[in-house]
């Protein structure tokens, strides 16, 4: 894949990749920086991208791996993916009244979800991807993706329906 093809196929994914990075890193500045690094990795992987059946899925997989490495490096990783049932970082009542922005609160809620749930709900509900694609990107089975998706959605519902 030469620069021209890369420009047509991969560069237009920049905003999607930015959003994925932001969903995982939960910080706009970190996400912006990550996109630069991710694109250099994508350029290095251009031969594999050319051969890939699903270019977007492989690009997202590379982006996801980069962000997870970043999270691990900064010790932000959350290890209690499947079994955690509490939302430890729920916004305080002060923050809730202060922000008065329900959308912002939901965004914050999503940010507090365990990493895999955060990624799955982002890829499905924001990017509108098929379960199969999400399974490829995350390295899970389709069934596991469904479980994570259901948990994430229910977690959000519980948090705002309880208010």
């Amino acid at each position: 894949m030469d620069l021209q093809q890369f420009e047509i196929k991969i560069l237009p994914l920049k905003n999607k990749i930015y959003r994925l990075a932001k969903a995982l890193l939960t910080n706009a500045n970190d996400a912006e920086d990550a996109v630069q690094d991710i694109y250099l990795k994508l350029w290095s992987a251009r031969t594999e991208l050319e051969k890939a059946d699903n270019v977007i899925a492989l690009s997202f997989q590379i982006a996801r791996n980069h962000c997870i490495d970043k999270l691990r490096a900064s010790n932000k990783m959350q290890f209690n993916d499947l079994n955690d049932e509490d939302l430890s970082k729920e916004p305080s009542p002060y923050e809730q009244t202060e922000q008065r922005d329900l959308v912002h609160i939901v965004k914050q809620l999503i940010e507090t979800l365990p990493e895999q749930q955060r990624l799955v709900i982002h890829l499905r509900d924001v990017e509108g991807m098929e379960l199969k694609e999400i399974a490829t990107i995350t390295g899970m089975t389709e069934n596991a993706v469904k479980v994570y998706l259901s948990r994430a959605r229910q977690r959000i519902r519980e948090s705002f329906s309880g208010k």
């Binding site: 420009e7 905003n15 959003r19 912006e32 630069q36 694109y39 959308v103 939901v106």
Partner: peptide
């Protein structure tokens, strides 16, 4: 509603660096 509005808004988020593509190339 808030949940769906939130997803809708998240879809419109873009990279702030307007010269990203040029710089990358």
């Amino acid at each position: 509603q808030t949940m769906f509005v939130c997803f809708e808004q998240a879809q419109t988020e873009t990279l702030s660096d307007a010269n990203f593509e040029e710089r990358f190339k």
